[in-house]
Amino acid sequence: MLNIQQVTKRFGEISALNALTLHIQENQISAILAKNGAGKSTLMSLIAGLSQPCSGSIEINGLNRLDKKNTLELKKHIGFAAQNTGLYPMLSVHQNVYFFAKLHGLTHQQAKIRVEQLLKQFELTELTHRPCQTLSGGQKRRVHLAIAVVHRPKLLLLDEPTLGADIYAREAILNVVKDIAKQGTAVIYTTHYLNEIENLNAHIIIMDKGRVLHQASQRELQEKHNENAFYVDFTLPIAEKVAHILAHSTVVAAQRLHVKNHNNAHTIEHIVHAMGDFLPHIQQIKRHESSLENLFFTLTDSHSTAQPETVLVKTKPVMHPKKEPSLL
């Protein structure tokens, strides 16, 4: 559906996109995950045709985006909802959606039917005659999105579509995006809310400094980058003494052991059993997790302050004897 090859975009000395290459398939929701200023909106703008790249090629549905003679045809294929809600504030919801339907070339009858359909789909029917300036942020977002799909585009570009929406509006928008994708539309979705990407089960594109770092499904990314491991915390500084008991274990602190779980060789039961006499000195066992957030931080070389761990076993505090046990 979309094939971007070696696209570069500069604004003076600033390089927004650096030889970016990207492929998007039909019927797929692709979520672009990036820090602010990584080039997401510039990329959206290039795909939408609002600006031109300095070099490289963009092909949409087999048509060259940069060839002027394809522009009209491409406008029929692309729906774009920019970051800011683009609505005429004093006009009603119906007038806004209807106007853009007409601009896309729908006849009066087609536009009338399509507008009614969309207002129903986006739960806006009761607001049909309300001026957009009186709507809430979430309602405006829904109208904004309805306009982007009024001409049934094959490629839908959504730049932070849930920005400012409350959780109900967000849920409604995500459901509609899923419905649209089911109908065969390729969706490119940018957001800073990682739970939305998980909810959409989107194909993930991680961008940084104007490049695509990784492009894969959530499962593929997590399988590739998930570090399957445990942390064993002790109540005493005995990590070094215990390390030899468990294969692939490393001392990370006097009271902490890192156990790599190669080929799922370890289970909690296995670790507990292997500890033997050291068992009373275990404070807790945690599983190291690669959440999407941690994965993003890792891949973009940033540091997460969040601890990517889940506590699996937590023992009661033990009163430590002054002397270490004799068997140690």
Partner: peptide, 13 residues
């Protein structure tokens, strides 16, 4: 100001 200009450009023929 209303963020409609880019929408006009991408919609109108």
């Amino acid at each position: 100001d209303w963020a409609c200009w880019s929408r006009l450009l991408t919609s109108a023929h």
